[in-house]
Computed example of a mutant assay.
Amino acid sequence: MNIFKQFIKSLYSPKDIAQYRFQGIGKTILYVFFLTFLSIIPSLIYFSTALINGMDAIQNSVKTELPSFIIENGELQADLDAPKIINKEDFTILFDPTGTVGHKEVSNSNNTIALLKNEALIIAGGQTQSFSYSMVQDFTLTNDDLETLLASVESSLPIITPLIAVVIYIVAASMKFIEISFLALIGLLIQKLMEVNMQYRHTWRVAAYSVTLPTVFFTIMDSLRTLVPNGAIINWFVALIILLLVIKEIPRLEKK
């Protein structure tokens, strides 16, 4: 059975998922990569669209609306007593040399570029990319430098966007593997309580398919740009319920 048929079956059939415990690990890993790619498609679309559409607005704002500033010795310096917020049509620029706004406050925003006291953030399509000024030794940046940099970035977007997409995919895949590995550990406990003959490699395989339904649900919500309250809890709850139903489909050990 190919991964596309497995994908459909994994949405509704714990019995079929139970049969996948015997398949090769390579096919299961391939399925995880496929599921990860599917899950980040909405984020990649929104991120690339926001990045491209917002570049012109950002360049104009830097020229006309931002005060004179300099980034030196790992800090943003400007003659401002409070953060400055510039709202555009689909984008927001946050300029804060005061240190009032932190990383956590900005990470909850949508389509935002933030120049904070110690770092710069780009939030688009639900993804956050950060750059600490202190990462580069002797890093200095002024208004004119930023204008030149933005012009260079705009011309390089056809190269930069795919590279960022690859980074997002690698991070998302890593998180998915961690999620599945932890779920498989819980599966070991469940199978012992239910007296089912499974080893970790079996629970890992079925756990990989058990996350299909919650992953698809949150992918749809992301495509609709709808925030699900307590999303992480719902994700784990649904995956655990499916894993439990899968393990129930596996024959129990015969008692001697």
Results as ranks from 00 to 15, higher is better:
L94W: 03
D16C: 00
P158M: 04
L244H: 12
G26K: 14
N87T: 14
F218M: 04
S109A: 11
T112K: 02
F69Q: 01
Y31L: 02
S174G: 15
I178S: 12
K9F: 15
L38W: 03
R205C: 00
I85S: 00
P97I: 03
E249V: 01
G125R: 04
A184D: 01
L150N: 01
V32L: 11
A124T: 04
H202R: 06
L66C: 04
Y209I: 08
T112G: 05
L51N: 07
P67Q: 00
I58C: 07
F139N: 08
F131E: 09
K192I: 09
L157V: 10
Q127A: 14
Q6N: 13
E147M: 13
L66F: 06
F218H: 07
L227C: 09
Y12F: 15
K192E: 09
I250M: 03
L150E: 01
L94V: 15
N118S: 15
W236I: 05
G26Q: 12
F91L: 14
I123E: 07
K63C: 09
I3P: 06
K5Y: 14
D90G: 13
I250W: 01
T64V: 08
Q127K: 15
P67V: 00
M135N: 15
L163H: 05
Y200I: 11
T215C: 08
V106H: 02
A165D: 09
N197R: 10
F182M: 11
Y12L: 08
A207Y: 02
Q137F: 09
D81V: 06
N108T: 10
L193M: 14
S181D: 09
E147T: 07
I122N: 06
T49K: 06
D81F: 08
Q59Y: 14
V167D: 12
L11C: 05
M55A: 08
S223D: 06
V216C: 06
N118P: 11
N53R: 08
Y46H: 10
Q77P: 03
L224F: 12
F37L: 14
I170V: 13
T161Q: 02
K256S: 15
A232N: 12
T203M: 05
L244P: 01
G99H: 11
A57F: 15
T140G: 02
F34Q: 09
V32S: 04
L44K: 03
D96M: 03
D222P: 00
H202P: 02
I17R: 01
H202W: 04
E72F: 05
V228K: 00
S61C: 13
E154P: 04
